[in-house]
Simulated scan of single mutants.
Amino acid sequence: MDAVLGTAVLLGSGVTAGVLFAVALSVLPALFAMETGTYVYAHKLLGRNWDPTMPVVVLTSTLLAGALAVTADDGAARVLFGVAAVLLLGVSAVSHLCNVPINRRVKAVENPEELPADWEDPRPLWRRWHMLRTLLALLALVVNATAVTMI
């Protein structure tokens, strides 16, 4: 059973790290290259399918790593799976507490061509939070991969 859960946690943490890495590598530079109105429009389009999918992937991976932290036979693997679960929980926390509120503000803009006078470009802040969660996801993948080799 640990082998099945290990495969599943690698798949989930790999997808998480891969998606966040791809956004950091390609999507973010493209968004920064856009005029603000175009960015708002693109941001709304890009977020439509990530929002319902990625929380499920991240939280499922977190639960799988947590389960392996309890059930794995090897003590070192249990510790590593616990660390990976905490790292993935960090990905979720940064997403929900930092990136999602920014996403909501951008989505609330009714007309991207007529931004409010007090509009502050959220891209730099969003990028900082995104880079943090990307780092956490990559670390979780490495830790999960290491732990899986022990079971």
Rank of each mutant, 00 (worst) to 15 (best):
V40N: 02
L132S: 11
L97A: 15
R48N: 10
V27A: 13
G75W: 06
D74R: 00
A65G: 00
L31N: 08
G47I: 09
W126K: 05
S61L: 00
D121A: 01
M34Y: 13
H43K: 01
L64W: 02
G37Y: 03
A30W: 02
L139W: 11
L87V: 07
L89W: 12
E120S: 10
V56C: 06
A76G: 12
A76K: 11
A93I: 13
A67F: 09
W50N: 09
R78G: 09
E113W: 12
F21G: 02
A8N: 09
H96A: 11
E120F: 08
T146K: 00
L10Q: 02
D74L: 00
M1T: 12
A93K: 00
L115A: 08
E114Y: 10
C98N: 10
V23K: 00
G90W: 14
A145P: 06
T38I: 08
T134K: 00
V23W: 02
V4K: 05
T38Y: 03
A33M: 02
A65Q: 01
V57C: 10
N103K: 06
V83Q: 06
G66D: 05
R127D: 05
M150F: 05
G14N: 02
L63G: 15
L88A: 08
T149P: 02
V15S: 01
S92F: 15
A140F: 07
L125W: 07
L45C: 10
N103L: 06
N99R: 02
W126S: 06
V56F: 11
L135M: 14
H43E: 09
L25W: 12
A76L: 14
E114N: 11
N111V: 07
A33W: 01
L88M: 15
V143A: 04
F81V: 01
D74F: 00
V83D: 03
L5A: 14
T62C: 13
T16K: 00
H96K: 07
A24S: 15
P55S: 08
T36R: 13
G14I: 07
S26T: 12
G75K: 11
L136N: 06
P124N: 10
I151Q: 12
A3D: 12
V9S: 14
G47F: 08
T16H: 00
V83K: 01
W129A: 04
A84S: 14
T36E: 15
A77Q: 05
G6E: 04
W119R: 03
M54P: 07
E110W: 03
N49I: 10
L31Q: 14
